[in-house]
C-alpha cells in the first residue's frame, strides 16, 4: 500500500448532498420550532417563516432524492445497516461507553452511524409525507390524513420527528469534531488520509 496516497472517500455528490441536506434540515427544524411555538422575542413575519420552512423542505427533498439516485448508480449501500451491524453495534456502544479502546473494525461507516443515517432517511420520508399532506391540507393525500387520524396527530408526529433530528444531529456534530477530524475533512475536500 502506498503510504503517501490520500484516499478519496466522499464523492462530490455525497458532499453536495451532505452540506445541502444539513443546511436544509437546520433551517427546517429551526423554522419548524418557530412555527410550532413562536418566540416572543422574534417578531418574524409568520408568512415568511412558513415560506422559508417550505422552501427548505423542498430543497431537502431534492438533496435526498439526489443521494438516493447516486446510491443506486454507484450501488452504494454503505449507509444501510446489515444484520451483522446489530452485533457490531454492541462493540460500537462499548467504545463510546469507554469499555474498549478502539472501534471494532468496520466498513466506511460504523454500525452506530449506519443506524442513525438510515433512520434519518426513514424519519425524513415519514415527515415529508406528513408535511406534503399538511401542505395540501385535505386537498390531496387525504388517505394520509385519515390514516394518521387528523391534523393534530400529524403535527405531533412532525414535532417528535423534529426533536429526533435535533437530538441526533447534535450527537453527529459532537462526534464529528471529537472522533476523527480527517473524516470531517473528507466531507469538505473529499479526501481522507489513509490509515498506516
Amino acid at each position: 500500500m502506498d503510504k503517501n496516497k490520500v484516499t478519496p472517500t466522499q464523492p462530490l455528490v455525497v458532499r453536495i448532498f451532505h452540506w445541502g441536506f444539513a443546511l436544509s434540515m437546520v433551517m427546517i427544524v429551526l423554522t419548524g420550532f418557530e412555527l410550532h411555538s413562536p418566540f416572543t422575542f422574534l417578531a418574524f413575519n409568520y408568512g415568511n417563516v412558513f415560506v422559508v420552512h417550505m422552501t427548505f423542505a423542498w430543497l431537502a427533498l431534492g438533496f435526498v432524492s439526489l443521494r438516493i439516485v447516486d446510491a443506486f448508480i454507484r450501488k452504494d449501500t454503505s449507509f444501510i445497516p446489515k444484520l451483522s451491524d446489530f452485533r457490531g453495534f454492541v462493540g460500537v456502544l462499548a467504545y463510546y461507553l469507554f469499555l474498549r479502546d478502539s472501534l471494532p473494525p468496520g466498513e466506511k461507516y460504523n454500525s452506530g452511524q449506519k443506524f442513525i443515517f438510515f433512520s434519518w432517511f426513514i424519519v425524513f420520508a415519514v415527515a415529508t409525507l406528513l408535511g406534503i399532506a399538511t401542505y395540501f391540507m385535505g386537498e390531496y393525500l387525504v388517505w394520509v390524513w385519515r390514516l394518521v387520524g387528523g391534523w393534530q396527530i400529524v403535527r405531533t408526529v412532525k414535532f417528535l420527528a423534529a426533536v429526533y433530528f435535533s437530538a441526533t444531529i447534535l450527537v453527529h456534530i459532537y462526534l464529528s469534531f471529537t472522533e476523527d477530524l480527517s473524516r470531517l475533512q473528507a466531507m469538505i475536500t473529499g479526501y481522507e488520509r489513509q490509515e498506516p
Binding site: 471529537t178 476523527d180 488520509r193 490509515e195 498506516p196
Partner: peptide
C-alpha cells in the same frame, strides 16, 4: 483522537 487526525503527516499516524 485529535493528535491522530491532525498531525502533519502524509498518512494517518
Amino acid at each position: 483522537n485529535l493528535i491522530k487526525s491532525t498531525a502533519k503527516a502524509k498518512h494517518r499516524p
